[in-house]
Amino acid sequence: TETYETTDETEARKIAEELKRRGLTFRIERHGTTIRIESD
Rank of each mutant, 00 (worst) to 15 (best):
L24R: 11
G23N: 05
R13F: 12
D40F: 15
R27D: 04
R30G: 03
T6K: 01
S39C: 15
H31P: 01
D8M: 04
E9V: 07
T33S: 12
T1E: 07
E11Y: 08
K14H: 10
T6E: 02
F26V: 13
E18K: 07
T1D: 05
T6F: 07
I15P: 00
T7L: 06
E5C: 13
E17A: 12
A12F: 05
I37K: 00
H31V: 12
R27N: 06
T34W: 10
T6A: 04
E17V: 07
A12V: 05
E29D: 07
T7N: 10
K20M: 13
T25D: 09
R30E: 04
A12G: 03
D8T: 05
T34G: 05
A16F: 07
D8P: 00
A12L: 04
T33F: 10
S39P: 07
Y4M: 02
E17H: 08
E29V: 14
Y4V: 03
E9Y: 09
I15H: 05
R13I: 13
E11N: 04
S39W: 15
L24Y: 09
E18M: 14
R21D: 05
E17P: 00
E2Q: 12
I35R: 00
A12Q: 01
E9F: 08
E2G: 08
I28N: 01
S39R: 07
D40Y: 15
I15D: 00
T10M: 12
T34K: 08
T3K: 10
T3M: 12
E2V: 14
L19I: 03
T1V: 13
T10D: 15
T33V: 10
T33H: 09
H31R: 09
D40T: 15
A16D: 01
R27F: 09
I28P: 02
S39Q: 07
R21S: 09
R21I: 07
D8I: 04
T7W: 05
R27C: 13
E2A: 10
T25R: 14
G32D: 04
G23K: 05
F26S: 03
R21L: 08
T25A: 11
L19M: 06
R27L: 07
I28F: 06
T7S: 10
E2N: 10
Y4Q: 01
L19A: 01
K14S: 09
T6G: 03
E5Q: 07
R21Y: 05
T10K: 11
F26W: 04
E38G: 03
T3W: 15
R36L: 07
S39T: 15
T6M: 04
T3G: 04
Y4E: 00
G32C: 04
L24F: 08
D8N: 09
Y4P: 00
E9S: 05
E5Y: 14
T6R: 01
T7A: 06
A16R: 05
T34R: 07
L24E: 05
E2M: 14
I37C: 01
K14T: 08
R36E: 01
T34E: 03
G32R: 02
T1Y: 13
D8R: 03
A12S: 03
E18D: 13
R30W: 14
I37N: 00
A16V: 15
D40L: 15
T34H: 07
T34L: 14
D8G: 02
T34Q: 06
R36C: 08
G23V: 01
A12P: 00
E5P: 01
D8E: 05
I35L: 04
F26Q: 02
D40G: 12
S39Y: 15
D40R: 11
L19G: 00
I28G: 02
R21G: 07
T33Y: 08
D8S: 13
S39V: 15
T3V: 15
G23L: 02
R22T: 02
G32M: 03
R21N: 09
R36N: 02
F26L: 05
T25Q: 11
E5D: 05
E17T: 09
L24I: 13
R22L: 07
I35A: 00
T7D: 12
T34M: 13
A16K: 06
T25E: 09
G23R: 03
E17S: 10
K14A: 13
R30V: 13
T33R: 08
D8Q: 03
T25H: 14
K20H: 11
K20F: 09
T1R: 14
T10R: 10
E9P: 14
K20L: 12
R21V: 06
T7E: 13
R36F: 07
K14G: 06
T1F: 14
E18T: 07
T33W: 07
T25P: 07
R13L: 14
I28A: 02
I15R: 03
R22Q: 06
I35G: 00
E18F: 10
H31G: 03
L24C: 12
F26Y: 11
E17D: 11
E29M: 12
R13V: 10
I28E: 05
E38K: 11
G32N: 04
K20P: 00
K14P: 00
R21H: 06
K20E: 11
E17L: 12
R13K: 11
L19S: 00
A16M: 15
R27A: 04
T3C: 14
T3F: 14
S39M: 13
E9G: 04
T33M: 11
S39G: 05
E5F: 12
E5V: 13
A16E: 07
T6I: 06
L19V: 01
H31A: 07
L19E: 01
T33K: 12
I28Q: 03
E18W: 15
E11L: 11
E9N: 04
R36T: 07
T1K: 14
H31L: 11
E17F: 08
